[in-house]
């Protein structure tokens, strides 16, 4: 939209390019790239065969599968409820709306360890919520379900905050036109609104997924941490470190780093697609 009108390229008259870019690259390099390079070099030092053996160790695979599986479930829950929350916040006026809007960001502001102990005290078999789930045979804390709860909490704002601005900009006249042409509300919803929201929704989903896959602080309190069952990949890195197994820790970390790269790449593609195709998005 506005960004699009400015895709011209020309020499800028503004000063400070060298200074700001130089500082940016130097700082980025020192704080982020050099440390990450240390990880890459360390894992490269393992040799391909050894790296492959460590990365495909059954316990590593189980941990990665768990991290991904639970993050996917959490991101999906958040995609559904996030879209709903955004819809309600943008389209409806009701008592407490501003309050709701403010608390959406709570997971960004609340330290993950605090979230972890709070959720554990709620969902443990003798907790506020857990005591009602226990008789039903539902086990949340110390089971993969607990991981999903924690990940849902920490990644909740992403979908809401990506969908919200796009929803606010969707032209009501399109909906009116659809209605005038005889479309039912459901048809309008799925043929007009959902397609327009899709890029933002996918972006939010991918962001939530990226955040959830790497989450550590809130999960370790609630997970139970059983190898093969409820041991997430970041925890496995810590455990390998504690076992003096630097090679193992580095290998798992390198796999996760590669995954983070891929996810970021996908997110960027989604955002570019959304800008190109729909003219809005981030």
């Amino acid at each position: 939209m506005r960004g699009r009108a400015r895709t011209w390229r020309k020499r800028s008259v503004l000063p400070g390019f060298g200074l700001s870019l130089g500082f940016t690259i130097a700082y980025l390099g020192l704080v982020v790239l050099v440390p990450l390079a240390a990880l890459v070099i360390k894992s490269a030092g393992l040799g391909a065969a050894e790296f492959w053996r460590l990365a495909t160790d059954p316990r590593t695979l189980a941990a990665l599968r768990l991290s991904f599986g639970t993050a996917l479930v959490a991101a999906t829950i958040n995609a559904v409820f996030g879209a709903l929350i955004a819809w309600v916040l943008v389209r409806y006026r009701f008592f407490g709306r501003r309050f709701l809007d403010a608390v959406i960001d709570l997971p960004f502001a609340l330290p993950t360890a605090v979230a972890g102990i709070a959720l554990t005290s709620l969902y443990a078999p003798n907790g506020w919520v857990g005591q009602f789930l226990q008789p039903l045979g539902l086990k949340v804390a110390y089971a993969p379900a607990g991981i999903v709860v924690a990940l849902t909490f920490v990644s909740l704002p992403f979908v809401v905050r990506t969908v919200e601005p796009v929803l606010a900009e969707i032209d009501r006249e399109l909906e009116e036109a659809a209605a005038t042409l005889g479309a039912s509300r459901a048809q309008t919803m799925f043929k007009v609104i959902v397609p327009a929201l899709l890029p933002a929704l996918l972006t939010g989903f991918a962001l939530a997924l990226a955040r959830a896959v790497g989450e550590y602080g809130s999960v370790i309190f609630i997970a139970g941490n059983i190898p093969y069952v409820s041991e997430i990949a970041p925890l496995l890195i810590v455990i390998r470190l504690e076992e003096f197994d630097y090679a193992g820790a580095t290998a798992v970390a390198a796999v996760m780093l590669a995954i983070a790269f891929v996810m970021l790449f996908v997110i960027n593609l989604l955002q570019a697609w959304s800008r190109r195709r729909f003219g809005y998005g981030s």
Partner: peptide, 17 residues
């Protein structure tokens, strides 16, 4: 990048360095 890197890895890289 730091957004999608697991916090544990952020700590690990400094231990490696």
């Amino acid at each position: 990048l730091p957004f999608s890197v697991s916090p544990v890895i952020s700590g690990l890289v400094y231990v490696l360095l």
